[in-house]
Design a protein around this nucleic acid. Structure first.
Lengths: 212, 212, 212, 212
DNA sequence: GATGAATGAGTGTTCATTCAT
DNA sequence: CATGAATGAACACTCATTCAT
């Protein structure tokens, strides 16, 4: 009844609903891929369809939000690991977390690959993630823990690749990605590196490609 | 009967249409992923919708056909490379061809990963490919060209992973996969291999996972 | 909750639409038989196609709903007539109402006959109707108003038969069914009944036949 | 090779194919109703789809042909029974044959009821059947075997009604129609006929209704 | 004449999105 | 602001019909 009290209450609800929706959407996309319907997401969140659209005017918007959350999570982890002493261990931990996160979020790869992604926030988040991971990678490079020709953007891209390698086994061997992560790490720290036949991708290229 | 063999007639048109359709479907799926509609495929092929369904009674059937074509192509290449003297070079060439082929067929990865794949022909073709690639891999292993803990099924899975790593760059740097292939090869032939933390996938697990 | 009951609002519209749809469907089926398309029904109701499917997720569901409405109407009439003094007049009135109702609902006969009818509600409603009509028939039998070898299920089946007899005349002589109803009633009350060559159908047989 | 010999040979094939098609169509329609597809009919006949359309340019035409065959069969039977001594027995036999034939030809009722039937041949055949049956009925009337207010057209219409009465039981009790035929015959020969409340249908009304 | 491949309008159904309540 | 009914553009798929061989 207190006029002032209602507004914060509603705000609180909106925040709660937004979180419910993001969780529901993540679960739904993880299970059915991008084909998961807005209706199912609403149901999982225990909300009405209209409410979903109030929060995310478009399915693409919801996708962007969920992707941003993952990117933020990864960037946060990378930032925290910058403080670690052992750069090699830090990089390994980042990649472990990263691949694991992808496994829980089947939509992510599909979203990253889709050329129609319009959201500049996502592009910015990807770029930012690449910057932080480059810092992480640079330390490992400087410590001689990994070869010199690998960039942070390489590392970010490799997360998706490792996940994809193990994806066909997800149903029967959900931990198989660990095998391919290790194999990749062996490639990164090889004592006898080949000359890589293609220059490293630049950050803007990654994000632009997500645009074109 | 002899007459029938000499009279290509209608049959020739059908063969041509089938090829038109497979090509159109590959292109459409490459562009829009599995969401590409049967209608668009028909249009791309310059045929009527009904014709698509005469050739492939179901979207799933068309998908299976397109996937089989790719698998056959890979298995054929692998088989031919079994004759080569230099096992390491042969394996490298197989993987090069493989990743290149995947780039042209974006549907492939989505199809391989999809749990509902019902076509036993596809499952059989995957299994067969794994067998041939295992032979190819075994020779490289025996020649000491790659580490001892990598199987043919690993190699097949890695094709998808390498492709995925470079996929976000496809639009701007279509050759970027070469970088990640080389990196992977470095991992495969490392002089100081780590103990891989997960046992190698068995062939049946791969194909079963495509089933479950 | 009290508030919800007093606020017809949206709900009122939905109820109205449901009725519009049932009426439109009845008309469409009456005109074109079961081939009437969901699209046409939507158009007749002045609603969009999607709305039809929101109310009745399947054509079969719509069919079931329309059939249930008719069955309920018949069962209600039969129940009310159980109170009448003159059992013969009551039975006649029931049959009159019944055949008249069928004339307005050409789908009914096709639905009743269709073996794939999955809806247990319809089966239950048929069974229930047969029970009530058996009560009505029993009274007439006991009063000697009709022969002793006729059951309620016979009466229910005869409604469809009488309707069908006059169906080819519907367009030019919409009241012709009265002629065949009277003829049937004469058969039912004949003073010199033949031995009927086939045992009476059991209720479960009727409903099971709609199942098998 | 003899130029003259080919024509009769082809003629013979055409006649054979026509019969194959009519039988296949009758079976298919009996099983699935009018929804039976031209494709299935072709398959059942062991012929190609094109051949069906050479014989019957339209599904409606095939329907008409099949219906004509049934009508001819009934008219033939009625004609033959005109010679019998016992008119009552003859009428009973005609009706028995008639209802039995309908049971084997589920399409017939649907065809008779369908207002869009355009074929004048069918209309003529119905009219002719009514004439012959009227002769049969007249004899029974004159012999006092049935009531005086029943016409041949009534009898023809009753065939469909009796069949429909038992139709819902067809799957579980294929002979149930005998029960309702007997009941109808009791109505026809009742010693105390009611005044039928609607004048008898005229032949042209029947056939016109099939037109409107 | 027989064949069956091609056609394309039509069907039931789904789903992102809008909007009245 | 939340709700869920209404919308209508797709979609996969079917089938009578046409026509090149």
């Amino acid at each position: 009844m207190a006029a002032a009290a209602t507004t914060p209450g509603q705000r609180a609800d909106m925040v709660r609903n937004r979180r419910l929706l993001l969780d529901a959407a993540a679960a739904a996309f993880a299970e059915h891929g991008l084909e998961a319907s807005m209706g199912e997401i609403a149901q999982r969140a225990g909300l009405a369809k209209g409410t979903v659209f109030r929060h995310f005017p478009t399915k693409e918007d919801l996708l962007a939000a969920i992707t941003l959350r993952l990117l933020d999570q990864l960037a946060g982890a990378a930032g925290r690991l910058l403080e670690a002493d052992d750069a090699a261990a830090a990089l390994r931990e980042f990649m472990t977390n990263g691949v694991e996160a992808l496994a829980a979020d089947r939509a992510f790869c599909e979203v990253i690959g889709r050329p129609s992604l319009q959201h500049s926030e996502v592009r910015d988040a990807i770029a930012e993630l690449c910057v932080t991971v480059e810092a992480l990678t640079a330390r490992a490079r400087e410590q001689g823990a990994i070869r010199g020709d690998i960039t942070g953007t390489d590392i970010v891209l490799l997360l998706g690749g490792i996940h994809q390698t193990a994806a066909p086994l997800l149903a029967t061997q959900p931990e198989a990605w660990r095998r391919y992560l290790e194999l990749t790490l062996d490639g990164l720290r090889t004592a006898t590196p080949s000359a890589l036949p293609h220059r490293p991708p630049l950050r803007p290229e990654l994000t632009d490609s997500a645009l074109t």
